[in-house]
């Protein structure tokens, strides 16, 4: 027995050490990478109490997972190395089982699971506690963009959710077509937007800044192109933003390019789908009343500059597969430039 053991032990020990190092390195690296700003949508950098509760649960599980991984893989590698058949080696020892051992390794996972289950259940109930929001936003999912309504504030916008820092945001999640999922990893886990239902989600952002979010439930052709941003501002900045969203916009000078754009807007197809307060009342596409206050167009696909906006008006489906906004071949380049000029007044 002894001389059969010796050459194997070093091998098994090395394998064990490599496994342990790999497992811990993976965990370590994940944490380190997560803190880098190169991952704007990371789930590992919570910026709200809700997201931190989730992250804490995950951290606890990850420790257990790494321990189990190392122990079981090591046991596997050791067993294979140690009991590998070799010439002159011992024959297999026939045994059918060992009840004590088997009960032990049934209980061990049960105990570990209890350590995972308790914080899990705590976090479930903590995060489910309904909170009265300081700001309530109705989020309506569309193929493939986000509508943000601020009831009581009279604000209707799209794809950029502005919220004040340190205030609790209460979201009412709805959908007009298919199931979408609201996900901004820095602040909370996903919550689905389900047609015919209203779901609720709360979080209190702790830092100002712009945070990435994206639809997380497959919702059709441009599911991949359904981004949004959460813009967390100081209360003053938020109030200023809200005031701007509600401020009336003067009609463009009658001789200007923008005035021509308004005329095209009014007699073209735009009015069927888009809303600009006092001009048109379509509800299919995003509200354009303050479109030029937004940083991006097409649900976060492109920066909101003149060139992109013109290309988008010209042929949206070419830029965003399946887009319900039809291509506008009847418009000349001048028409589109005029439309862009008009939309630029909407700020």
């Amino acid at each position: 027995m002894a001389d059969r053991k010796r050459p194997l032990l070093p091998f098994a020990l090395i394998a064990l050490a490599v496994l342990a190092v790999l497992a811990f390195a993976a965990g370590d690296a994940a944490t380190a990478w997560a803190q880098s700003s190169t991952y704007p949508q990371t789930t590992l950098e919570p910026k709200s109490e809700v997201a931190r509760a989730i992250d804490n649960v995950l951290d606890g599980i990850v420790i257990w997972v790494i321990i189990i991984f190392v122990v079981v893989q090591a046991a596997l590698v050791f067993t294979v190395a140690r009991f590998r058949q070799r010439p002159g080696g011992a024959p297999a020892r026939h045994m059918h089982g060992n009840t004590t051992l088997e009960i032990a390794w049934t209980l061990a996972p049960a105990i570990i699971l209890a350590f995972i289950a308790v914080p899990t259940v705590k976090a479930i109930f903590a995060n489910a506690k309904p909170t009265k929001g300081d700001v309530t936003v109705r989020v309506v999912g569309h193929q493939w963009w986000w509508e943000f309504q601020y009831p009581g504030m009279g604000i209707l916008t799209a794809n950029e959710l502005h919220v004040p820092v340190g205030k609790t945001v209460a979201l009412e999640l709805e959908s007009v077509d298919v199931i979408h999922s609201f996900w901004v990893p820095a602040f909370a886990g996903k919550k689905d937007l389900i047609p015919g239902r209203t779901n609720h989600l709360w979080f209190t952002p702790e830092e100002t800044g712009t945070f990435a979010g994206q639809c997380a439930e497959f919702c059709g052709a441009s599911h991949a192109n359904m981004y949004f941003k959460v813009v967390v501002q100081t209360q003053e900045e938020f109030d200023a933003w809200a005031a701007q969203q509600k401020a009336p916009v003067a009609a463009p000078d009658s001789a200007s390019l923008a005035a021509r754009g308004l005329a095209i807007y009014q007699k073209g197809q735009c009015v069927a789908c888009h809303m600009i307060d006092g001009v048109s009342y379509g509800v299919v596409g995003p509200n354009l009343g303050k479109v030029s206050t937004r940083a991006t167009i097409a649900a976060g696909m492109f920066p909101n500059d003149d060139e992109n906006l013109a290309a988008w008006i010209r042929n949206a489906p070419a830029l965003k597969p399946g887009s319900l906004m039809t291509r506008q071949d009847q418009l000349s380049d001048e028409d589109i430039a005029a439309l862009v000029a008009y939309l630029r007044t909407r700020r």
Binding site: T43, V57, W64, N127, G189, E217
Partner: peptide, 15 residues
């Protein structure tokens, strides 16, 4: 096991 925990799963689901 990592996504048997609903809070963790809400971050991992559909990713």
């Amino acid at each position: 096991i990592m996504h048997s925990s609903p809070p963790a799963d809400t971050q991992q689901n559909d990713t």
